[in-house]
């Protein structure tokens, strides 16, 4: 078992190393493509070319492109994302603050999505072709067409402004009390989770219904196994693969959706930082956001791949 898991991990890492290299290279190339320079921050638009050249020399921007890339990538591997053009602050530290906010929301959204998505998907599959199934299909269809910012606005309108059950904006770190922390992230997390709930439920239902049609499941039923045992031993393990894979693809969406929900709920997260830095033209900060989100996505997909290898019998046999 352990060897198989390690093998899956090795294969996934081999798959993700080129992904990481290409993605970070594109991120680095954004600065050259944008033509932005830190000189605009320090000197304004009317700077002389000599002054601009001096500033760019200080930042090491007059070196060859590949030399800049090499030192940038080296810093990246040691955890340094550079300093902001805007205020000279350490980007890693700025991002760490924002990442706590965004990961709280995205993580909680993921939990909600997994709990409700798998609950609805399993229920629909077990009660397939009944009214329960049709009702769940209807609900997931509605959920899937509600963009997160629409849900967010409705939630703010009803639960924060109308009923006053939740705060409408802001963020409180978990170490200042679990209750306030949960209260602040609940509405944004719900807003983000709809898409995950809908896709996971649909994919899980399809996978499980397909598994129920397999001969070995019919065989298990004929052998007199209890429905519960049939479900957990045979149907779930064989039918869960596509749903897990979809979950892996959902994570980038959760991070991306954070940009919008954070704006609605006024949270000082990752997405707000990205939007603000981007509008200021603070290239290193934007690159930092992109690199961190790439890393998060890659790590999350590694986890999903290993889970896939452990859970599904077909993957375990190396099929």
């Amino acid at each position: 078992m352990l060897r198989r898991t390690l093998a899956a991990l090795g294969r996934s890492v081999a798959l993700f190393v080129p992904v990481f290299l290409v993605a970070t290279f594109v991120t680095f190339a954004l600065r050259s493509l944008s033509g932005l320079s830190p000189a605009h921050f320090q000197l304004g638009e009317s700077a002389t070319p000599e002054a601009v050249g001096r500033i760019e020399h200080q930042w090491g921007l007059d070196r060859p492109f590949l030399a800049q890339y090499a030192s940038w990538f080296h810093d990246l591997l040691t955890g340094h994302l550079g300093t902001s053009w805007f205020n000279g602050a350490d980007i890693s530290a700025l991002l760490a603050d924002g990442a706590i906010v965004s990961l709280s929301v995205a993580g909680f959204a993921l939990v909600i999505g997994v709990v409700f998505g798998s609950g609805l998907g399993i229920l629909a599959a077990v009660r397939r072709t009944t009214w329960v199934d049709r009702a769940i299909t209807g609900v997931t269809t509605v959920l899937s067409v509600m963009p997160s910012f629409v849900v967010g606005i409705l939630l703010v309108g009803v639960f924060a402004v109308g009923l006053r059950w939740f705060p409408s904006a802001g963020f409180v770190p978990a170490d200042r009390g679990l209750g306030p922390w949960l209260a602040h992230i609940t509405l944004p997390a719900i807003a983000l989770s709809f898409d995950t709930i809908a896709d996971l439920a649909r994919q899980l239902r399809a996978g499980l219904v397909a598994a129920y049609r397999e001969n070995y499941v019919t065989g298990a039923v004929v052998r007199g196994l209890s429905p519960r045992r049939v479900f957990f031993r045979h149907v779930l393990r064989n039918g869960i693969g596509p749903a897990l894979a979809v979950l892996g693809l959902k994570f980038p969406n959760l991070l991306g959706g954070a940009v919008v929900t954070e704006a609605i709920f006024g949270m000082p997260g990752f997405g707000q930082f990205a939007a603000a830095s981007a509008q200021r033209g603070d290239v290193p900060a934007v690159q930092g956001v992109l690199v961190v989100s790439i890393v998060l996505v890659v790590v999350f997909n590694l986890i999903v791949n290993v889970l896939l290898a452990r859970v599904t019998p077909a993957a375990a046999r190396g099929v």
Partner: peptide, 23 residues
Amino acid sequence: LRLVDTLIALPFLVFAVAVTALL
């Protein structure tokens, strides 16, 4: 295939925000 793997790893809203502002 490698390029497709890479593109799918990028959160497109974050990238859209970044690129609109920079480019």
